[in-house]
C-alpha cells in the first residue's frame, strides 16, 4: 500500500516506488554480503582510478590479474570445504610443499609434466588423507587441517633442507610469465578452473549436494546423499588446487621456497567469506569468492600505488574481515530466527 501511495503522490512516482520496493526488500531480507562486496570493490576501482594515474594502466591491471589468480585458485578450493561447513587451514602449507616438491623434481631432471604430475599427486593424496581423518576418524576439520598447517610446512622444510630450491628450467618459469590474447596465462588458468567449478556448483547434483550437506547434514543424509563422497571431494579439491597454486607460484618466482604461501589459508578463507560464503556452511559462490580475492588484491595494490603506510594497509584488511564476519553472524542469527 505504501508503495502505491508514495508513487501516486510523487511526480517521479516510478523512481520512488522502485527505491521504496528496494528499501522494503532490504528491510525484509537485509543486503546480501555479495552485493555489498561487489559494490565496495567497484567503488574502490572507481576511486583508485581517480586517485592514481597508474591504477588503470595496462601494466597494473595485468599485475592485478596475475596476483588474483594464485590467491583465487586457493580460495576456490577452500570455498568447497567451507560450503560443507568444514574448513581447510592447511592450504598455504600444501602450496609450499607442492612448490618445493615440483622444484626438487625439476632440479633432479624430470620432465616438466612429470614433475607437475608428481606434485599434484602429492596434493591429491594430502586431500584424501585430510578427508579420511575428518570423515572416517571423526576428528574435527579445524583440528585436522590445523595439524596439517604445521605438518605439511614441516614436510616442505624437510624436503628442501630449509633452503630455497633454485636452478629450474626456463621453460617452467615461462608458463606463469606467459600471456595468451594479451591476458596472463595465470589468469586464464584461474578463469577456466573457476568456470568449471561454478558450473559444478550451480548446475550439477554434486554442487547441490555439497550445499545441502553444508546446510543440513542430517537432512542430506536422510535423502540418501553420499556424505562421505562429498567430504572426500571437497577436501581433495581444496588440497589439489592449493598444490596447483603452489606450483604456479614456483613458476612465477622461478624458485621453490619452503616458506612460500605463509598465511595464505587466512587470505583464502577471508576471500570466500567476504564473497558471501558462510562459515556455518551451505552458502557461498565461486563468483563471490573471486570478487573477495579481487577486493583484497585491490586493497594491497591501491595502498602500494598511493604509498599508504603498509601498517595501515594491514589494519584496513583486518577491519574489512571483521565487518564481513560480523555481517555473516547477523545473517546466521536471522537464519536461526532470533
Amino acid at each position: 500500500m505504501s508503495v502505491l501511495q508514495t508513487s501516486e503522490l510523487n511526480k517521479q512516482g516510478v523512481n520512488v516506488s522502485v527505491i521504496d520496493k528496494l528499501s522494503q526488500r532490504i528491510k525484509q531480507k537485509g543486503v546480501p554480503v555479495e552485493t555489498f562486496v561487489v559494490l565496495l570493490t567497484a567503488l574502490l576501482w572507481v576511486v583508485l582510478s581517480f586517485a592514481s594515474p597508474y591504477f588503470l594502466t595496462e601494466g597494473n591491471v595485468l599485475n592485478i590479474m596475475r596476483q588474483v589468480s594464485i590467491s583465487g585458485i586457493i580460495a576456490f578450493g577452500v570455498l568447497f570445504t567451507i560450503l560443507i561447513a568444514g574448513i581447510d587451514l592447511s592450504v598455504g602449507s600444501v602450496a609450499a610443499l607442492a612448490g618445493v616438491v615440483v622444484a626438487k623434481l625439476l632440479v633432479l631432471g624430470l620432465p616438466i609434466w612429470l614433475a607437475v604430475a608428481g606434485a599434484m599427486g602429492l596434493g591429491i593424496a594430502i586431500g584424501l588423507f585430510n578427508a579420511f581423518a575428518i570423515f572416517r576418524l571423526g576428528i574435527p576439520a579445524f583440528i585436522v587441517t590445523l595439524a596439517g598447517l604445521q605438518a605439511y610446512r614441516g614436510g616442505a622444510l624437510l624436503a628442501s633442507d630449509g633452503m630455497s630450491v633454485s636452478g629450474l628450467p626456463k621453460a617452467f618459469s615461462a608458463f606463469a610469465r606467459g600471456e595468451f590474447l594479451g591476458i596472463p596465462t595465470l589468469f586464464w588458468t584461474m578463469v577456466i578452473i573457476g568456470l568449471i567449478l561454478h558450473f559444478v556448483l550451480t548446475k550439477t547434483r554434486t554442487g547441490r549436494y555439497l550445499i545441502a550437506m553444508g546446510s543440513n547434514q542430517e537432512s542430506a543424509r536422510r535423502v540418501g546423499i553420499n556424505i562421505s563422497k562429498m567430504t572426500f571431494l571437497a577436501y581433495t579439491l581444496s588440497a589439489a588446487l592449493a598444490a596447483l597454486a603452489g606450483i604456479l607460484l614456483v613458476s612465477r618466482l622461478s624458485v621453490g621456497t619452503p616458506t612460500a604461501a605463509m598465511a595464505y589459508e587466512l587470505n583464502a578463507i577471508a576471500a570466500a567469506v567476504v564473497g558471501g560464503a558462510s562459515l556455518f556452511g551451505g552458502r557461498g559462490s565461486i563468483t563471490g569468492t573471486f570478487i573477495g580475492a579481487l577486493l583484497f588484491v585491490t586493497i594491497a595494490n591501491g595502498a602500494n600505488l598511493l604509498g599508504v603506510d603498509p601498517f595501515w594497509q594491514m589494519v584496513a584488511a583486518g577491519v574489512l574481515i571483521a565487518i564481513v564476519v560480523y555481517i555473516d553472524n547477523v545473517q546466521k542469527r536471522r537464519k536461526s530466527g532470533v
Binding site: 601494466g59 599485475n63 596476483q67 612465477r252 621456497t257 612460500a260 605463509m262 595494490n301 600505488l305 603498509p310
Partner: peptide
C-alpha cells in the same frame, strides 16, 4: 621515493616491486 614491507613473503616482495614500478615508472 618509496618503501614497502613484504612480511618475509617472496610473492609479496614480487608484488610490491611491481606496484612500486607502476607508481614510479
Amino acid at each position: 621515493v618509496d618503501n614497502r614491507i613484504g612480511n618475509n613473503d617472496m610473492a609479496q616482495g614480487l608484488t610490491n616491486t611491481l606496484d612500486i614500478m607502476s607508481r614510479t615508472p
